[in-house]
Design a protein around this nucleic acid. Structure first.
Lengths: 123, 123
DNA sequence: GGAGGTAACCTTGCATCGCAAGGCTTGCGA
DNA sequence: TCGCAAGCCTTGCGATGCAAGGTTACCTCC
């Protein structure tokens, strides 16, 4: 796995930063997916690309297992859709359960992020 | 521990909420500890109590293993301090490495939380 | 018509993290 | 003396994100 030669241990940025970001995303990615689905239905790769663009996930390797979990939990429903000249795509749609979970998360997120912001300001 | 009987949020809230919060704290707790130590030195239980009060951790069961990790990584230093009539306490202090890590985290946190906020607003 | 690229799906194995539960030691007070 | 609380820590568990790899279908180019 190719570590940068100048990626010294004491370095504050570099690979350290990716580790920090990856841990920060734990528990976030799940609800970012729900938030995207609240706007409109998406298919898997579309979700992954969008989230990568926003810096909210590193690859589809996180998204597909997550979607399977959400489906098992009843937070999303899926359907296959076939258009001409395009491979069939599996679309994901939010359920009522998923909408409730998203609303719960929003509340928890506001509380937690406020606490963190306060802590960082007080340094 | 048991569940509160008046926990009538149904299935969307309740125990689910604790699960959501616990996952959200992953990767956060570590840097909240660093932020507290940036203000002044603390001993372990003091940190744990403060963080529980802010809703940033559930118990000391997360804090002590974390402090050991931070010490191994060189982000904090420790010293024993004995006062009269008080049990000896192990105090934790931030190192230069820890300060750099905290600064890296602050940057990542702002980016990530901004993205999440934007996502939640656009629903 | 075949070869190759690419979009889209998914699985496997791993490292990490927070948490509950429990244990050990020391000092104080009844 | 006995019990309780403060303060330290360890162990086992479940959940999460990630890299890497594997599989099909569609289209294009020779």
């Amino acid at each position: 796995m190719a570590r940068d030669p100048d990626d010294d241990d004491g370095e504050a940025g570099g690979g350290r930063e990716e580790r920090i970001a990856a841990n920060l995303r734990k528990g976030l990615l799940e609800h970012c997916v729900l938030a995207l689905l609240a706007r409109r239905d998406h298919y898997g790769l579309e979700l992954a690309d969008d989230l990568v663009g926003r810096g909210l996930t590193a690859s589809e390797g996180s998204v597909y297992p997550l979607l399977a979990r959400l489906r098992d939990a009843g937070a999303v429903e899926t359907r296959w859709e076939s258009l001409d000249g395009v491979r069939p795509r599996r679309y994901y749609a939010l359920t009522t359960t998923g909408r409730e979970q998203l609303s719960t998360f929003t509340r928890v997120w506001r509380q937690t992020s406020d606490q963190v912001d306060k802590l960082l300001e007080e340094i």
